[in-house]
Every structure is written in C-alpha cells, then in structure tokens.
Amino acid sequence: MKRSTLRKTVLTLTALVAGFGAATATPAQAAQAADAGCRTGAKLVPTCGVLWGGAAGGFTSAPRDKALKDWEKASGRTATIFHQYHKGNEPFPTKAEIAMTEDAAHPRVLLENWKIAYGSTWAKVAKGEQDKRIDAFAARAKAYGKKFFLALNHEPENDVVARAGSGMQAKDFAAMYRHTIERLRAKGVTNVVNVLAYMGNEKWMAQSWWKDLYPGDDVVDWVGLDSYVSVEKGYYHFGDFGDLLDRKPKGGALGFYDWATTKHASKPLMIAEWGAYHRVGKRADKSFVYDSVLAELKKRPAIKAIVHFDTKHDDEGDRDISIDSTSSSLSAFRKLAANPIFNVKLG
C-alpha cells in the first residue's frame, strides 16, 4: 500500500473511532472503528473511544442480568460495563454476574458497587474492624481472576454524618477507602480497578467537608460521577447531558467536570450513573438529552465511560429514568447507542 493511501486509511479510521461526525454509523463503519484498535488497558481505560455501560431493573424484583439483557435489546447495543450493587457481607461477584462476563458474543466487564460499611461505620472499617469482610472479598476477587471495576460506597455524600464521633464523617470515608484499597493490594488483588463515585450534587459540593472525601490519588484509579437531569422545564435539575456535568456550588467554585480535570487531571472520568427523567406518568420526551451526549463527550476528553441507570421509577418512586418512556426517546437513545465511539474492545 502506498504511504499516501495508508495515511488516508488511518485518518479515516481515526475519524470513525472518534465517532463525533455523525450521530449514527453504518454496520461497516462500526466494524472499521472496532478494527482500528480501541481497547481497554491495564486500568480498563480505553485507548480511544468511550466505554458504554448500563444498569437496569433498579428498584424492582427483576433479576438484574435478565433486566440488562432486555435493556440491551431495546437500546441495540451490549453494555460493555454491567453495573451491579452490593452491601456488607453479600458474596460477589455472583454466579449470574460472572456468567454475564463469560458470554463471548456479548463481552462485558463488571462494575460492582459495594457498601462495605453496611451495619458498621466508615471509621470502624478504617480501624480494621471489617478486615474479615475485606479479606473474604479479596479471596473471591482473586478467584474470579478477570479485571473489574469496584466502587466503594458510591454517592458517599448522602451518607455523611457531619458530627464528630459519628464514624461517618467525610474524613472517615476517605480513611475507609484508603484502608480497603491498601488491604486488597496487600492481599495480592491485582484485578480490581476502583472508582470513587461521587453524587456530585451542587448542594453537597458546597459543604465544607466535601473536599475531605477524597482519599488520595495513589488509591483512586477512576473518578466517578452519578448525575441525572430532568426533561421537564421548571422541574428539579432540568437540562441536557452537559448540565449534569457542570453543576456548580454557590460561591463560584468549579463544576464537577472542571473540578475533576483540574484537581485530579491524571484520572479518567466515569459517569457511573446517568439518565434523563420525568415524573411518573408525564411521558415527556427525552430525545434532546440523548441528542446532546456526543457533542459533550467531544468537548470533554477525560470522560472514558458512561453507564446509564434505567428504571421506571427511582427510589423515591416518582421519577421515570427509562429510555423507552416514549417512542421518540427510545429512537434517540438507539441512535446514540449505535455510534462507533462506543466500539471499545475489552483488552
């Protein structure tokens, strides 16, 4: 092949991998992008593109593996990241979760949320009082063998008790996080990639203790954010995909994305939960949120993964965060999911 021809081919594939020129791609274009070599590295950070993930069946009794498969069918793409939730002594990865990562036709990696201090406190975990719990998990993780994401106590802001001696102050969370990661490493666990998943709400970011949550770059692999937007004008947190990244506390402080990329520039950013909601029964269109995602990702190269949380009602029972609440919403989401930027192979 001539150099000029080779250069044109490389440039074409690069553009396809970036995936921002168009909201959809033909099957041939998607295949070309995948062949260009976007894949995950040592810390599951993609060499190019963005990891696509999902959690489905939230706040229902539906088996989470089946719920995710149904969501994948509806969205038209396999969720490379399969997001699950656990607490306390619950044994995980479970057989069902492991099976989801052994499906060669649908490659997936686990994102396990673990409220390790369930029934205890962060301070007690940091003091070693839950080391038996940590060691049991370490043994399971090593036996599993494959790399997977671990989020320790996602959205810690919501659990902070800002009172001396509570054992649940922000500094206690940081100490718990550090102790757990350091003990896992000491036990020889090398396949866990940890994610510090913030709630990122401007109310919490304005608290004097918010900065104390961070345990240190040496024990954090990814910085995560759980954030949602409303599609009803005038309702709480109305906006598009960019708005869920840029909420700022009062007083002129940085929004979450700018904070993460300024204060922790070496860390990849995962949107560990995201979605668009309307009040149950309103059936408002979500298309404009889904249509805004690609342009925002183009402006924000630190984002290396986005994981949609899908449910017909949230924990408060009044918000629909599903992708198919209207036909136009589902169509827009399928268009987003089809983009080759999400064609990342698990390395």
Rank of each mutant, 00 (worst) to 15 (best):
M1Q: 12
R3P: 12
R3H: 09
R7Q: 07
T12D: 12
T14F: 08
A15K: 12
A15S: 14
G19K: 06
F20T: 15
G21C: 09
G21H: 10
G21R: 10
A23C: 14
T24Q: 08
T24I: 06
T26M: 02
Q29A: 13
A30T: 11
A30S: 14
A42T: 08
K43S: 15
V45L: 10
P46D: 05
T47K: 06
C48H: 02
W52T: 04
W52P: 04
G53V: 08
G58I: 09
T60A: 08
S61A: 13
P63N: 12
R64H: 13
L68N: 15
L68K: 10
G76S: 05
G76M: 03
H86L: 11
K87E: 13
K87F: 12
E90C: 06
E90F: 05
P93S: 04
P93C: 04
T94W: 02
K95D: 14
E97S: 11
I98Q: 07
I98E: 08
M100Q: 14
R108A: 11
L110N: 01
N113A: 14
G119D: 03
S120F: 01
T121D: 03
W122F: 07
Q130M: 06
F137R: 14
F137G: 15
A138S: 11
A138G: 11
R140N: 02
K146R: 06
K147G: 04
A151D: 09
N158R: 05
D159T: 10
V160Y: 00
R163D: 09
R163V: 15
M168E: 13
A170N: 00
K171M: 07
K171R: 12
D172K: 01
F173Q: 03
A174C: 05
A174G: 05
R178P: 07
H179E: 06
T180E: 01
K187V: 05
V189Q: 03
N191G: 00
N191L: 00
V193I: 15
V195G: 04
A197Y: 01
A197F: 02
E202Y: 04
Q207E: 10
W209P: 02
K211Y: 00
D212Y: 00
L213V: 04
L213P: 01
G216I: 09
G216M: 07
W222Y: 05
L225P: 13
S227Q: 00
V231G: 03
G239H: 01
F241R: 00
G242H: 02
L244H: 00
L245R: 00
R247K: 07
G252I: 03
F256R: 07
Y257G: 15
D258N: 14
A260W: 05
I271Q: 03
I271K: 04
I271C: 07
W274P: 03
A276C: 08
F288C: 11
L294N: 10
K298H: 10
K299G: 07
P301E: 06
P301S: 11
A302D: 11
K304F: 05
K304R: 13
F309L: 13
D310R: 09
E316A: 09
G317T: 06
S322E: 07
I323P: 08
S328G: 08
S331V: 10
S331N: 12
L336E: 04
L336R: 03
N339L: 01
P340M: 04
P340G: 07
P340V: 05
